[in-house]
Amino acid sequence: MRAASKAIIEVKDLYKTFGKDIEALRGVNLSVERGKVVVIVGPSGSGKSTLLRCINHLEVETSGEVWVDGKQLNEKNKDINEIRAEIGMVFQLFNLFPHLTALGNIVLAQRVVRGRSKAEAEEIGMQQLKRVGIAEKAHSFPAQLSGGQQQRVAIARALAMNPKIMLFDEPTSALDPEMIKEVLDVMLDLAKEGMTMVVVTHEMGFARAAADEVIFMDEGLIVEHGPPQQIFNNPKQDRTKLFLSQILQH
């Protein structure tokens, strides 16, 4: 076991190939310490989302190792559901369950996975909805909510499982501009509370404000990583400079 290491997520020499020749990841090493916020940036197709999805095994690595909280993820791992329950995931397109209310979305996995009673799950669900600021929408169905509200319900759904880690896969990319802030605010609060977070995003403002470490990926590799000041103000690699110049122009 790697109890000696402070890292709660450890990725070693990770390769992921889709089909025969699409190499999404080409040897990625990453280590995330407990309570840290890591923001992954990079052009589309650089492998950021794939890396994130490997951390909870929504994608299975072609080779390499993924360790979460001292346990290695692999295909035969019988505990994969237990490990996943400790890792909250927020998706670009929310992926709320449309046949359940906001509260129903949050209650389901608590009952099925955590075995909580209905009353307990609903109480925790309401607390989480309050935390993300939409308790009054508890009994609305996803289709009745705005994008920003849906994403906040999705965050509440993940948080209700009391995860040790939260993964965010471009959580604001599908949102109208006026709704981005409400989601980022929730994420900032979460970061302040000490949640371990890995965030794939194009929101550089969030990265500056919340990240302990920024990782720049391109073509399936980590090109550069470091504290946000260093990456944004003083990037060392040309590719990082080029990317930042393209993204920060406006």
Binding site: M89, L96, F97, V112, M161
Partner: peptide
Amino acid sequence: RGQMEAARSLGMSYSN
């Protein structure tokens, strides 16, 4: 597909 992914990411088994 995102529905299955969301459910699995919450720790639910395939059958659940």
